[in-house]
Simulated assay, not measured.
Amino acid sequence: MTALNSYVLWFKQIDKEDGALVGGKGANLGEMTGAGFPVPEGFVVTASAYRAHIEENSLGNKIKALLAGLDVEDPLALNRASSAVQAVIEKAPIPKEVESEIFAAYDKLGKDPWVAVRSSATAEDLPEASFAGQQETYLNIKGDSSLLLHVRKAWASLFEPRAIYYRVQKGFDHLKVYLAVPVQRMVQSDVSGIMFTMNPVNNDKKTVVIEAIWGLGENIVQGAVTPDHYEVDKVEQKITLVRRVDQKIEMVKRGEKTFDTKVPRSRVTKRKLSDKQVLEVAKLGKKLQEHYFFPQDITSFKLAPSQLSRLPKSKLIRLPPKPRTAGKS
């Protein structure tokens, strides 16, 4: 368990017991790093840093006033209140001590490296709360000033309309929910994918499901590209299904720009993963499940030319009721 007054912690300093300080995503990144899984290097700007930002800029009362009497069932009012609170948080200066620790950690990653700035919400007294997917992620961030800007934006995303609505519906105090910010070195991938260590369609616990596309992972997360589909028997470590899909567009990064481009003709009809790679990814998934004791939904993995990297988070998935139809949402 890590000291609660730390503003910045490296993944290697964090484990699964640190959720109150670094949120679920941050705790998982630290836990996997400590367990030896291939997680790209990074650090977490902790919930203590967020609290310092709110307290030293006296933002608590301003946020309360902006949200007072808000009818979250009124979309226009909800969006107005959200924008107002986010503007207050983004415009406030980051406390000097917090800023210094962020700069020092970023410098240790190298000379202005490209990083992802993520959000990891936490509430010390609300273990039953789930804040996944309510806050923002920013990719391909570079430079001190841009990093600070996006840390503030991540903090402000704690007051996205959907996040405000959720807390009101659950009866949670807005000022007792905090935000940690994982900052992680970007991996420029040839292949990106997702993996389920249990079949999400029929709840088959023996099957690992892997889906993969060419290029960066945003297109698979957004559903913009139909992925290849692979299934592996995790007991026999044997591939049981391969469904290849032609891919004509991929997302790439060139310099400071990320954009969609045509897949080279030589790769359009090619499988994204070889049998060896499929089994390697499945083996990693099995190890993750064994480590956490629950099925895992790996929301992003990336294959660089010579490396398998696990990005950006792992979340436990509950076994849902068996679906009436065999469709996949």
Rank of each mutant, 00 (worst) to 15 (best):
V22D: 05
V22F: 01
K64V: 13
V44F: 03
A65W: 04
L29H: 03
N57D: 14
A81Y: 08
G34W: 01
G42T: 00
A47D: 08
S58E: 13
I63D: 06
D18Q: 00
P75R: 03
R51F: 01
Y50W: 06
G60V: 05
T46F: 07
I54T: 03
S82G: 09
A77D: 04
K12W: 07
E55K: 09
Y50D: 11
K64P: 05
V72H: 09
E73P: 02
M32C: 04
V45L: 09
F43H: 01
Q13H: 12
P40F: 08
L21V: 09
V39M: 03
N79D: 13
T33S: 04
E56M: 14
F43L: 07
L59I: 13
M32S: 07
K62C: 03
T33W: 04
D74P: 00
K62Q: 10
G69C: 14
G34E: 01
I54V: 10
R51C: 07
G36C: 04
E73T: 12
D18T: 03
P75T: 02
G19W: 13
T33M: 02
N79W: 10
G26V: 06
T33Q: 02
P75A: 05
N79L: 11
A35F: 08
K12I: 08
A81F: 03
A35S: 12
R80H: 02
G19K: 15
K16E: 14
P40C: 07
D18K: 01
E56H: 14
T46Q: 07
L59D: 10
S58W: 05
L59T: 12
L76N: 15
A35P: 07
L29G: 05
A49E: 08
G42S: 09
K16V: 14
N57V: 15
K62H: 13
A49W: 03
E55C: 12
F37V: 14
A52S: 15
M32I: 11
G60I: 01
E56S: 15
A20R: 06
L76H: 12
R80A: 10
L76I: 10
A47P: 07
I14G: 07
G23W: 08
F11S: 01
G23Q: 11
P40E: 09
H53T: 07
N61E: 15
K25I: 11
G23D: 11
T33N: 00
S82N: 10
A68K: 12
G60K: 01
P75L: 02
A52N: 13
A77I: 00
G19Q: 15
S48D: 11
A68Q: 13
